[in-house]
Design a protein around this nucleic acid. Structure first.
Lengths: 203, 203, 203, 203
DNA sequence: TATGAATGAGCGTTCATTCAT
DNA sequence: TATGAATGAACGCTCATTCAT
C-alpha cells in the first residue's frame, strides 16, 4: 500500500532528523548541557514527540552512538576485506578512521567523551551495550592485524598494542584537526601517521 | 608562629582533601553527574565549606585540572632536560605519560573528556585558561622533538605529527588499561609503544 | 475556533491567578520573604509552572507592579479628563487614589516599599522600567495641576509641591487605614484631606 | 577606674560604628540584600563580633530603627514644647521632619519601607515594639495638634487627619528629594508645604 | 500520532548563626 | 573579648518526563 509506505517513510525521515539534530547538539554542547527542548526545537517537532520515538534521553543518545558505530564497523570491514598483508591493512585502517571521522566528527567527539566514563555505576543497559560493541570493534581490528602478521616472524609488540597505537594516533590527529578548526587537509595527517608507524624513525 | 602555621597547614590539607575527592568523583561520574553534595560528603565537610575554598563548581573543577597539569608539565620538563637525542626524548615522553597517568588516572580521564568539548561557547575564563595551558603543553612537546631532529636529515613527518602519535598512542594504551581494570603492568605497554614508533614494522 | 479560544482563556485565567496570589504574598511578606514555592502553593500549581508564565521571580514581581500601575494611570486619566478647574482636579485625584488603593491595597504597599529602594545598584531592566513609569505618573499629575492653575494668579507653591502633598496625604491616610485593619470608611478620609488642602486652616 | 571607663567607651564606639554602617547598608540595599558579612566588612570587624553586640540580624536592624526614632521623638518634643498655637506647631513639625530626615535619610527610607509590612505574621518582638513606638509617635503629634486647636472652633477635619497630611506631605517631599539626588534645598519644600496646608488654595 | 502544558525532584549557591580557639 | 572557619537549611531555577487533548 503506497500510503502506508509513505507513512513509514515519513516516520523514518523524522526519526533521522531527530538523530542528526541530536548528534550535532550532543557533540557541541555535551550530553548534559543539551536539553530535550533543544533537540525538539532543532527538529521543529514538539518535545512530546521525541518520546514517541525514543524511550528517554539516554535512549536517544545511545541510539545515535550505536547506529553510527554500526556504519563505522561495516565500512571498516569492507575496506579490510580487500587487504591481505599487514601494511595494506594498516593503511586502510588509518584511512577509514580519518575519512569516517571527518564525515562524522560529531560522532567522534561523543565516542571519545563516552569512553572516559569507565567504571561508573553500571549505567543503563544501553550504555553497557554500546561499550560492548566498542570492545568488539577493537577486537575486530586486533584480529585483522594479527591475522596478517606473518606466522613465521617475531614481532616485538602485540597485535593489540599495534591496534591501540593506530587508533590513538588517528584520534590525536582528529582532535588536533578539530582544535585547528577542521578546515585543513587530513590527507597529510594520514600519510604522516603511516610513515611514523610503518617506518623506522632514524635517530 | 607555630599556631598560625598549623592552621595554614590544616587549611591546606583540607583543600587537598577536597581536590582529591572531587577529582575522583568527577572522573568517575563526570562533571554534571557529580554534585557539590557528593563532593562535600566524600570530604566529610559540609557543602557550604566547599564554597569557602572554591568560588563555585567550575572553579573547583578547573583548579583540579590546572594544578595536575602543572605537575605533569613540570615532571615532563625535568625528564626531557636529561635527554639529548630524539630516541631518548621519545622514551622519556612515553614513560612520563604512562607513569604520570598511572598515578593520576582520574586526571587522565578528566583531561581527555574535557578536550572533546571543543567549539562550545567559549566557556568560563577558567576553561579558556586550561585549554590554553594544554595547547602550550602540546607545543612544548613538539618543540622538544623538533629540537632533537637532526638538522641534516629529511623526515617524512612533522614534529607535531610525531608528538600527536606519541600522545595518542599512550592515551589509547591508558584507556585500554583502565578498561581492563587498571591492574596490569604498564611497563609492557611502554615497551611496545616504543617498539612500534621507533622501529620499522616488518611487513 | 472555540477550542483554541478556551485554551487561551484558561491560560489567561491561570496567569491572573498567579499574579493575584503573588501580589498578596509579596505585599504581606515582602519580596524576599515570599518564595516561589509560596506562590506556587497559593495558586495550586507547581513551581515549575510559574516559570512557564514568568521568566523569573523579578519578572513576576514587576509584572504585577507594572500592570497595576497601568490600570491606575488609565483610571486617573479618565477622571481628570472630566475636570476643568483646579479644585475639581484635586477632588478627583484624591478620590481616585483612595478608591484605587482601597481596591488594590496589596499593590499600594508594594509600590511604596519599592519606592524606598532608590540609589541601589540600577537593578534589573524591569525595575528601571517600572521606576520610569512611576516618574511619568507623577509628572502627569503635576501637569494636570499646573494646567489648571490660573495663568493670572500667583501661587505661593509649585504644581509639583501640590502634587506631592496630595499624594503624600492620601498615602498617609491609606497607611493609617491599613494599620487600623482596613475596615473603616475611607470616604471620611477623602473629605478631610480635601478640606485640609483646599481650605484655609483657621489658626 | 579609668581603664574600665575607656573600655566601656571603646565598646560604645564600636557599637555605634556597627549601627551606622548597618543603617547605611540597610537603607541602600534593603534588609535582605544586606548580609552580615557586608556589615562586618564595613565596620572592619569580624562577623562573629557582631553577634557579641547584637543577638541577631533582626536585633541589629530594629536597634537602629529604635534608637533613631527615639532621637527623632526627643527632638520633636523639644520643638513642640516651644509652641503654643496651631500654626506654630505645624511649622515646627514640618521643619523637624525635613531637618531630621535630611540628616538621617537612611533612617527615613528604612522607616517607610518597614511601615509597608503590616499584617505580616506577628513578627519578632522587636518588630512589634518598634511599630508600637511609631504609633505612639503619631499619637503624640495628633495630641500636640488637637491640644492647640481652639476649643471654641469647629474644624472640618480631625487632628489625626491633619497629622497624617503633614506627615505624608513631608514624606512625599523627602522621597522626591531623594529621587532627585538629595542635593537641592529642602527649605523651599518646607515653605511650600506650609503654604499649601495653612492657606486657602485659590481656585 | 502529535502536542505542549504541567510536574516535581534535584542542583548550585547563599547566608544567618554557632563555636572552638 | 574577638575571630573566622564551619555549618546546613533554604531558595531560585532547570529540565526530563508525563499525559490530557
Amino acid at each position: 500500500m503506497t500510503i502506508a509506505e509513505r507513512k513509514t517513510r515519513e516516520k523514518e525521515l523524522r526519526r533521522n532528523a531527530m538523530l542528526e539534530a541530536a548528534e550535532k547538539l550532543f557533540a557541541k554542547e555535551g550530553y548534559h548541557t543539551t536539553t530535550m527542548d533543544d533537540v525538539a526545537e532543532a527538529t521543529d517537532l514538539s518535545k512530546g514527540t521525541l518520546y514517541l520515538y525514543f524511550k528517554n534521553k539516554d535512549d536517544l543518545f545511545f541510539t545515535i552512538l550505536d547506529e553510527r558505530l554500526d556504519t563505522h564497523i561495516r565500512e571498516l570491514k569492507e575496506r579490510l576485506s580487500k587487504t591481505s598483508d599487514l601494511k595494506e591493512a594498516i593503511v586502510e585502517l588509518v584511512t577509514e578512521q580519518l575519512t569516517f571521522f571527518e564525515r562524522h566528527h560529531y560522532f567522534f567527539r561523543l565516542t571519545i567523551a563516552e569512553q572516559c566514563k569507565i567504571e561508573k555505576t553500571p549505567g543503563s543497559d544501553l550504555r553497557q551495550h554500546f561499550l560492548q560493541k566498542q570492545m568488539t570493534f577493537l577486537m575486530m581490528i586486533e584480529e585483522a592485524l594479527s591475522g596478517r602478521m606473518s606466522a613465521g616472524k617475531q614481532y616485538p609488540f602485540s597485535a593489540r598494542s599495534l591496534a591501540l597505537c593506530l587508533m590513538g594516533s588517528t584520534h590525536a590527529h582528529m582532535m588536533n584537526w578539530l582544535m585547528a578548526g577542521g578546515d585543513q587537509d587530513l590527507q597529510k595527517s594520514r600519510d604522516e601517521i603511516i610513515q611514523i608507524i610503518l617506518n623506522r624513525i632514524e635517530v
